[in-house]
Design a protein around this nucleic acid. Structure first.
Lengths: 203, 203
DNA sequence: ACCTGAACACCGTTCAAGT
DNA sequence: ACCTGAACACCGTTCAAGT
């Protein structure tokens, strides 16, 4: 829309990332080619190189954007009803995670592929921070399982992530999804009946 | 070694699968090319097509072999001490799962990629059968969490798989792995209280 | 039945050259 | 600084042809 941009874009980098995000959702990782991205954006096949030295750099950037969006989704779910009960807040966060994970399954795989650089790792830490905060709050209120928050957080994350992964693998059916997430949350709460052991009662 | 085999192999299919398994472990999925496989096995680049119509067919076959091996590993862990306590048996199974998953991280991704055919799904079901059996036994003995075994099984599987996935993504450190798995198991047991707190020393 | 060899379309990556 | 266009090596897939 501007008159004097160099060739085609003021911001080729973001245009490529946006196009890649769509293509990733529609076609999967394997179908994601730098050449086709360049074509779709209207630029020569060598142009992306200025912004992403190789294909992996593009994938890393996508993963970082993914973690940022995931973190924002979780944060939104957490602050949505900060003034109310702990359990539904935690549930909203978990469902936000699973919704993200199932909506952008290919992106999720990318984010957890583990081939990425340090910058991706720190983006991941950022996105999980609100979960840790929530756990601390739950422990302070006495409704969440005790123990080292770091480890309990990894445990909760593992469970929710595992549910999402099994769903994306087709091993969990859509109808089971919400149930399982709520069960998983209940597993980590103190005092809400028969979840693990059966909690509260003395002995 | 035989004198009169057609060109190079009596069993090209298995030779390709074996080579692929090694390459997968050493180089990852992206580096897995049919042409290089054919080369490594000493056959023309078009030869694999008789056995695997396309690349995905090879990946599916690898996934099936993976599930068979995983199932065998779990079954071995389960029957290793069938006559002793339930908890250590379950722990051995879970550790077998995680060991498999972290040793063959790329293969695990393939197995849970979800793009595969029905034959892969049934192989997956087969490999998880011993877990379900074990849960039934644990419930009968009254030491394992109650509830629909199908759902509790998915829950347990999600948790263990999630731990393995986060480990492969680099978000869980090697030293934390065993701890987390044992904690996860304890989470599903009845009567062994306050699992994730600090366990060993008296209250 | 099983494999070969050439061919096609596509890709990631590189680099001299343009503006 | 940012992009183009040609070039290179590699790949998956196809198919007529060999044994």
């Amino acid at each position: 829309m501007e008159p004097n941009r160099p060739y085609h874009h003021g911001n080729l980098r973001q245009a490529l990332l946006d196009q890649a995000t769509t293509a990733l959702r529609d076609e999967g990782v394997d179908a994601l080619s730098l050449r086709e991205l360049a074509r779709a954006v209207g630029v020569s096949h060598a142009a992306p190189r200025r912004h992403f030295p190789d294909r992996q750099a593009l994938l890393d950037a996508l993963a970082i954007e993914g973690f940022e969006r995931l973190g924002a989704d979780i944060r939104a779910a957490a602050s949505d009803g900060r003034d109310v009960d702990f359990e539904p807040t935690l549930q909203r966060c978990a469902h936000a995670y699973v919704t993200f994970a199932t909506t952008d399954a290919a992106l999720l795989e990318l984010m957890f592929a583990g081939k990425h650089t340090d910058s991706v790792d720190s983006a991941a830490d950022q996105s999980f921070a609100p979960i840790l905060e929530l756990i601390l709050r739950g422990q302070a209120e006495g409704v969440f399982e005790h123990g080292d928050p770091e480890r309990v957080g990894l445990m909760l994350l593992s469970t929710i992530h595992g549910i999402a992964a099994l769903r994306n693998a087709g091993m969990i059916q859509p109808e089971q999804l919400d149930w399982l997430v709520d069960d998983a949350i209940a597993h980590f709460l103190r005092g809400s009946r028969d979840v693990v052991t059966h909690g509260v009662d003395g002995a």
